[in-house]
Design a protein around this nucleic acid. Sequence first.
DNA 1: ATTTTAATAGAAAACCTTTTCTATAAAGTG
DNA 2: CACTTTATAGAAAAGGTTTTCTATTAAAAT
Lengths: 345, 345
Amino acid sequence: MKATIGDVAKKAGVSITTVSRVINNNYPVSSATRRKVEDAVSRLNFTPNTLARGLIQKKTFTIGVVVPSITNLFFPEVVNGIETVMQPEGYTFFLTETLERDEKEKKHVNRLLERQIDGIIVIGPSNHIMEEGFYERITGEIPTVIVNGFNKGIKCNFVLTDEKSGIREVLEYLYGLKHRNMAFMRGRKSYSYDLKEKVYKDFFIEKSIPLNEDNIIEIESGNNIASVKMAENAISRRLAKPEPPTAVVCCNDWMAVGAVRAADALGLAVPEDISVTGFDNILVSQLNKPEITTVDQGMNDIGKSAARLLLELINGGNRQAPLKKIILETKLVKRKSVKQPEGMV
Amino acid sequence: MKATIGDVAKKAGVSITTVSRVINNNYPVSSATRRKVEDAVSRLNFTPNTLARGLIQKKTFTIGVVVPSITNLFFPEVVNGIETVMQPEGYTFFLTETLERDEKEKKHVNRLLERQIDGIIVIGPSNHIMEEGFYERITGEIPTVIVNGFNKGIKCNFVLTDEKSGIREVLEYLYGLKHRNMAFMRGRKSYSYDLKEKVYKDFFIEKSIPLNEDNIIEIESGNNIASVKMAENAISRRLAKPEPPTAVVCCNDWMAVGAVRAADALGLAVPEDISVTGFDNILVSQLNKPEITTVDQGMNDIGKSAARLLLELINGGNRQAPLKKIILETKLVKRKSVKQPEGMV
DNA sequence: ATTTTAATAGAAAACCTTTTCTATAAAGTG
DNA sequence: CACTTTATAGAAAAGGTTTTCTATTAAAAT
């Protein structure tokens, strides 16, 4: 049976109070007594019960981290960033996966709240649940940071990357290389895809390039390995149609890998015959042949920023603190999958 | 301020006991009373404080999961397996990264113990810490499962993959294709690398093939993207020496990717000129060109098995239960990076 | 009609800490 | 020497639950 502070007190022949003071070192204790207590602690292998401590202090040094899927290359990086910041501060975190199921997302968040976490970071929340006002309510209860999900009307703390400028930079880059016929590949409806598509369309208007509707390609699957196959198929179909694009701008790296494969299969060389860009800079983009030009979101930094913001909220103690929206810069990573199109000089 | 069971009781005009009974549904309560309580619960948005509950029940429905690094492709799969099993049972888990630092590993485990977890799963533990008997002590305190780490003298519960037969199957396969000059690439000293090297050497003795010491190649880095570069360099050096191997057997997929790159750089085609095999079947092996023949460890299943074993231990309640060692089958995944060597028919 | 049993509800103890308040002894001050 | 500080230590309350034990009422059994 696990030793309690009472056992230690008895063994050391002092009061519980004194033991507590030695452990927490927050009140003067004579060196003789201290020695006795320390001796008893180590002999009994005593470790304080943080449930009891948390109960009285109303503080658990515990946070919750909610991710859609831990096996998705993207999220472990963010989680690692969070850990990097929180761990030295003495925090431990609960990790839960929602697998993009709305019921699970809510259930898990509630489960975390019951566990008296000091704060919560939700990565890639369901937009539907946000719209319900669920996270606004949570924000009212405990320090809450939403990562990579945004909805204009919702009053929460956000950490986002500037995907808008990221995708815009890609377009500028390709445009500068004289690409005019650029396809755009996205996944099913989501804040992030919608945002990028808007930037894409606006760019064409701004540059007065006629928009070819065939060039906006949507695939079912999201941000995982399944997208490779789907992207490959979708791009193959597109390349079979008239006026094949000289470049394919993809909303994530998986899609870009798929695009490269589709080109390969049709005997088109990347980047000589067709350029491809990705987004996210997950290692897949780096390992691909050719290495894929993509946009780095600094996933690790996202995690760190979110964690730092959460710490601020926790330590600030002011529930009425003004809400923050932190937007992180993206960075275009130029690699081997982009080139000026044939015939353009 | 968060509502307590007392607030609910007052609002509903009943005792705390009764509220508890409604919430846990473990004692008859008249339907009128139940309604009053449920009403108060939802009006006050009450959720029970699991710290208090855990304190008295000595059960938190919380486990600890310790991984070397969450960004390593390997571990998220295991973690996901654990979540898949534990989540429906009402458990939430703490995740902590050790980054392969011994002090961190111990500190994190202790921190978890303080948090009164019901059990702990340690993935890829430090062999040094195991040898200290640290995990034997932990096993005496709470249900403990060690995943993918093994040490003969240590009395713990283990979940392992049969790496021995996995690497053996690779060797048999290559041997069957008439490869005789096979290089072996490993990382720095660790249980798993040592084991595989032994199987490799034994295989050569068994088949009476003279062993070329140059064919045992060790690189510094472990199981991550950094290994790609190091493997590439190491293999390049080996290929420059006499009697270049017709096949390279790698201890993980990263190394295999590096080997393919080295071959590429030297103008050797994989698999026509040289065959390459990996280990682990992380998605990197699948995305490579050519797709890499590797050994699937069923990482997700490892996690599930570990979780199921842990549940057994937790629910069994018998701390003296006989220790278990679960060994999971591996599976050779034949892809495109292996071929019969030139000149052999 | 009286006694048992069943159904429902509450009071109080317990879980393990921290923290506030009180007590004692030693040391410093006039 | 009497009085106040200071240093050290303990008793008891508090934190939010569950659980055991006791109490009340109504229904069933005699």
